[in-house]
Structure formats: C-alpha cells, structure tokens
Design a binder for these strands. Structure first.
Length: 595
RNA sequence: GCCCUUGUAGUUCAAUGGAUAGAACAAGUCUCUCCUAAAGAUUAGAUAGGGGUUCGAUUCCCCUCGGGGGUACCA
C-alpha cells in the first residue's frame, strides 16, 4: 500500500475516533510538504474544523497526536495553521523503496479478460499530402494516450481512419495525369506522400491561375471558383471514381499505395503504430445505410428535395444534414459508417477520437447521432480534443507554404541532436551505428517531449528555431539522467558491488524526497489515464529527474563506504532509471543507456 | 450575432479550492584533481480588469476587455 493511502486511512480513523466524523479515505489526499516546512506529507484539516468545533490548529494537533500514537509509520508532526505536516519514520522509507523494487511492472495495472476494451482513433490523414506538424502532435498524443490507457488496465485497440477518397484525392490525381509525365516515387526519388502532395499543390496553383483569368473576364470570384474548368474536371473524375471506372480506380490505387508507403516510413520513424486501419472508401457507403435505417426508425427525417436530416433541437443544437439530395454522404455520414464497421469488428466499451478542437461541434453531434442509432458507447464517446500547433507567424496553412513537414522536422531534430552531441564530445569512441541510434533517440526525444509536455487541450506555439532545446525541461535532459544512472550501475557491476540489507539505514532528505517521488508514480499513471493527459506523465518524470539530480549531486554512490548506504543508493538509482524508462515509454520516448 | 475555448515572469509552460503562485529558456553570479557539467546552486522577474461564493480563489460563478476555433450540403 502506498504511503499516501496509509496516511489517508490513518487520518480517517483519527477523525472518527476524535470527532465521530466519517470521512472516506479516498477523499483525503495528503500532499508533499512544501520544502520550507518540516515534514514529508501534509494533510489539510479545514474540512473537520466545523465538526470538531475547535480551531484549525487544535484540530491539526489532535490528529497529529493520534497519528503518532497509533500509526507506526508516523514519527512526528508539526502544525502550521490548518496544515498538519507529518514526518514519516526515516527507516520506513527503506521498506517503501524495497516494495517498489520488488513490484514487477511497477506503476502498471494488469490487463485481464474482463478489462474494458477502449478503441483509440488517431492520425486520420488525407492521402493527398504528407504528414505535417499538426499530425505529429496528433500522432504522439494518440499513441501516448493508448499506451497510458493500457498501463491503466484497459484493452486498447489503436486505429486509424484514412481519408482516401473525395475531391481532394481527385485533384492530385488530375494534376499527375495532366502534368506528371508518368512520374513515380522510383523515377523521382521522392517519398510517395511527398510526390502526391506536390501534385496537389500544383493543382491548386493552376486552379488559382484559372480563377484569376475568369475574374479578369468579368466573373465574380465565387462564380469563377465554381466554374473553373480544372475543378469541373476533378468533379467528373470523382463521379467516375464513384462509378468504379476501372482506369480511374487503378490510378487511384496505385497513387494511394505510394502515399501509404510514405506514411508507413513516417509512422515507423515516429514510433507509432495501429492495430487496425480503416479506409473511408470502405466505410462511406456503410454510413448511408445506417442513416437510412435511422430514417425508418424515425430518428431522422427527409426533406422535400430528398436530403436526409437529423433534428438536434431537443439537444439544444441545430438540424444536421446527413445525406445530400443526390444521396451522397457528408463527413458525418462517413463517421457513422466507420463506427458501424468498428463495432462489428470489436466489442467496444469506449471509443476515443483524437481529433483537433476545431471539430468539437462535429463530435458533439456524432455522439448524439450514434446514441440515437443504438451504439451503446455513442453517448459516452470521448472526443480527445487537442489544441492547434501555432507557428510564430500564425497558423499553419498549406496554401501559404507555412507548413512544417513531419519528415523534415524529424530530420532536422536528429541532425541537430548529432551536432550538439558531437560538440560536447558525447559520441567519442562510439561506432557509427551507436552514434546514429543515440542521435535518433535524442532528436526524437526532444521533439516528442516538447509536444507532449503541454496540456493537450491548449493551443501551443512551436518556434522551429528556438523552441527545441536540449537543456532544462526537455526530453534530452531526462534521457541524460537515465544515461548517467546507467553509467553508475554499469560501474557498480564492473566493480562487483553487491546489494546488501539496508533496512536499518537512516536515509537523508534527498533520498527520502526521491523515494517519495518514486512512490507517486502509480497514482500519476492512473491520473493521466483518468484525465487523458500525457502531459501529467511528462511533468512528473521531469520532477523525478530533478529530484534525482539533486540526490546525485549531494550523495556519493560508488564511493560510499557504508555498505547499507551504498546498497540503498544503488537501489534508489536503479529504481529511478526504471521509472524514468517506464514513464518515458508511456510517452513513446526511448531512453539511451549512454549519451 | 450565437456557441465553445483561452488569457499566469521578457518568452515557452506548471499549479485535485490550500501555505510565501512553481519550472525552463533568455539575463546576472557561483560549483568540475570528485560516480557523464546535456548537471547542481543562486539573484531578479507574473495571475488581463472589476465584482461574487469561501476559513481560503490562478482554479468555481457573473460582467468587461483581449487571443483561438466553430456556426447546417468541405473533410
């Protein structure tokens, strides 16, 4: 049992004994005592002041006295206003550390047959352009969230819905057909997703030229945009695609394969993966069926022009279009279709969509519609709504060319990591393979940590030149600490230092603070799962690492001559490294053994 | 207009309603004959404004002023 729980239960008993008040121990959350006061844990006693009919100081003192006489873990206490500062018996911390060391999968809850099944959808790329910084945040959040939920004892299925059809794909295809001259990834040496993205940009360029011409001839802007021949051609292509025209379908399949090959490389390097991928070309027709089913059941209605709508005014929203008059699907319809297929494939208990906050309204509506259509998890679906990544000059826009490409970004990070490492001489004497591996870990670690340490719901600023650092609250700082611990442990092994009994050792301030931080880990993981926040893990591991560095600075480990102290510090180091690796693993960040 | 969201040091970020609002970067000053100085120590610097609830408010409620997003046939 954790020390927090021991204290919470003891306080609960104390309050019952002293004031005959029933308090759920879960409601009592001792916090780490501020460093300017003496003590390890602090309990706020204001909640019982009324029932006790005494001053906060008196209540705190009475509870403190009760604890010292009745709870063996408590050594002493002091009171500051309504704050009861509790000092744990120093040797008790040794047993806390030993317990951590003996716990397999420390911090994780085992997944069993009865565990709920959570499906996490993330990434959701379009097949007409490569992944950019926004996708990077999405991918890292989605992957990390899935990993955290698994650590919290859920069965997790990671999924991706690829938007592989629609007018935007036709634009790339048309541009390739017109001006591509048979270009392939092989012939150009370009990654497939970048090649297709280039044609999408080319289409847009030519299209705007046409629009400008038409405006010059006297058309209004709106009219020109709709009447441009290129757009009409793209629309025709979409109709052909929907009619399964063999030539168009063959081109579509070929070009999509190029894109998927490119995506796969990006995903692999980023370290994210999926258990099941859905394609909108498979799901968009399913949605239509489901909507028509809902129409029969009276959950939707049809307008005179033949379009199908849902009336959401009972829920305080508007009317929502689900099928156009010509019978074609809209975005919402496709999400319903995807939900249908997913539910056929998996016994989903909870569905989490990792999608940007610009779609809050969409998911509010989707939740209502899925519920109406009989999906048991529809009502409680989670829209993991994350904020946008902004650049110093504003929002990312593919049209203005202010997009940060995912592949370029990873390249730049790894290159910088290697340069910095070389300047510091950290890579001296290592093989080229090791140098490359470490640079990859450090560069991506910096990027991932930077994006994950921020509260996911908030918009964040990314400055390519200045944002990424390797000092301070960064991934490499944490990785470095891990590497340093590994170095100590290696040397201990080389010197044949054995771990002996340390239960009677009296740990110092630094050591206690570190054990306390390690003891917090399981609760942090659970909280991160409850609140869907990888940032909590990031902030925790940073605090832990700072704590370790202070300990490392003040306490000798290998040079310590007292075997009990040395054993305790080595164990402490080993467990810290273990928790760092585990916590960083929940963020999808690897930690090196040397750097 | 309406709806959602956000406002904390020069900058980027923290803070289940709890103590004197924490870090990092940038600026200044210390510490490597010592287990990896990508480190540690230290100085200066912030809750947009106004009300309310509370023993206690960055946190909850209301108003004002700024960001960002959405708003029915784009995804």
């Amino acid at each position: 049992m954790s020390i927090d729980k021991i204290i919470a239960e003891a306080v609960s008993k104390a309050v019952k004994a002293l004031y005959d008040v029933d308090t759920d121990p879960a409601q009592i959350t001792p916090q780490a005592t501020r460093k300017e006061f003496e003590g390890n844990l602090t309990v706020v006693v204001f909640p019982w002041v009324k029932a006790a009919r005494k001053s906060p100081e008196a209540v705190a003192t009475e509870i403190g006295e009760w604890l010292v006489s009745n709870e063996p873990a408590v050594e002493k206490f002091n009171v500051v206003k309504g704050f009861l500062n509790i000092t744990i018996r120093p040797t008790f911390w040794n047993s806390v550390l030993a317990h951590i060391a003996e716990t397999p999968d420390y911090g994780r809850v085992a997944v069993t047959e009865d565990s709920p099944l959570v499906m996490v959808e993330y990434s959701s790329p379009n097949t007409n352009k490569p992944l950019h910084l926004g996708h990077v945040r999405n991918n890292l959040l989605g992957y990390s969230l899935a990993t955290i939920l698994e650590a919290c004892g859920n069965k997790v299925v990671k999924t991706n819905i690829v938007n592989d059809r629609g007018i935007h794909i036709c634009k790339s295809m048309l541009a390739w057909q017109k001006w591509g001259d048979g270009a392939t990834p092989e012939s150009t040496g370009k990654k497939g997703d970048h090649l297709i993205g280039d044609f999408y940009v080319l289409f847009d360029k030519k299209y705007r030229e046409q629009v400008a011409e038409l405006i010059e001839k006297g058309m209004s802007e709106e009219e020109a945009k709709a009447e441009a021949p290129l757009l009409k051609e793209a629309r025709e292509m979409l109709v052909k695609w929907e009619n399964k025209d063999p030539e168009i379908r063959a081109m579509w399949e070929m070009m999509n394969r190029w894109v998927y090959d490119g995506f796969d490389k990006t995903y692999r390097r980023m370290g994210v993966d999926f258990d099941k991928i859905y394609y909108e070309s498979d799901t968009y027709l399913e949605g239509k069926e489901k909507v028509l089913e809902g129409l029969e059941k009276g959950a939707m209605y049809r307008k005179e022009d033949g379009s199908v709508w849902a009336d959401l005014t009972p829920e305080g929203l508007d009317h929502k279009l689900l099928l156009r008059a010509d019978g074609t699907s809209v975005y919402m319809t496709q999400d319903i279709g995807t939900a249908k297929l997913r539910f056929q494939d998996f016994p989903i208990d909870k569905m989490i969509y990792v999608v940007g906050n610009e779609q809050n309204y969409h998911f509010q509506v989707l939740s209502i519609l899925l519920d109406r259509l009989g999906f048991k998890w529809g009502k409680d679906l989670v829209h993991f709504s994350y904020g946008m990544v902004e650049l110093p000059n504003g929002k990312m826009k593919s049209r203005t060319g202010t997009v940060v490409d995912a592949d370029d970004l990873m390249d730049a990070m790894v290159t910088t990591a290697r340069e910095v490492s070389q300047q510091l001489g950290k890579l001296d004497g290592l093989s080229e393979k090791e140098q490359a591996e470490i640079s990859e870990m450090v560069g991506l670690g910096a990027l991932k940590y930077f994006l994950l340490k921020v509260d996911p719901r908030k918009n964040m600023l990314f400055n390519p030149e200045e944002s990424i650092d390797f000092n301070g609250n960064t991934g490499p700082f944490i990785q470095y600490t891990h590497a340093r611990i590994c170095s100590v442990l290696r040397k201990a092994e080389e010197e044949g230092i054995a771990i002996t009994d340390y239960s009677d050792y009296v740990p110092g301030e630094r050591e206690i603070a570190l054990i306390q931080a390690l003891a917090d880990y399981p609760e942090v993981v659970r909280k991160a799962g409850r609140e869907y926040s990888p940032a909590l893990i990031a902030n925790y591991v940073y605090e832990l690492v700072k704590c370790y560095n202070q300990f490392y600075h003040d306490c000798s480990i290998l040079k310590e001559t007292d075997p009990a102290a040395r054993s305790m510090r080595l164990t402490l180091s080993r467990q810290t490294a273990r928790v760092i690796a585990s916590a960083m693993g929940l963020l999808g960040i690897k930690v090196p053994e040397r750097m």
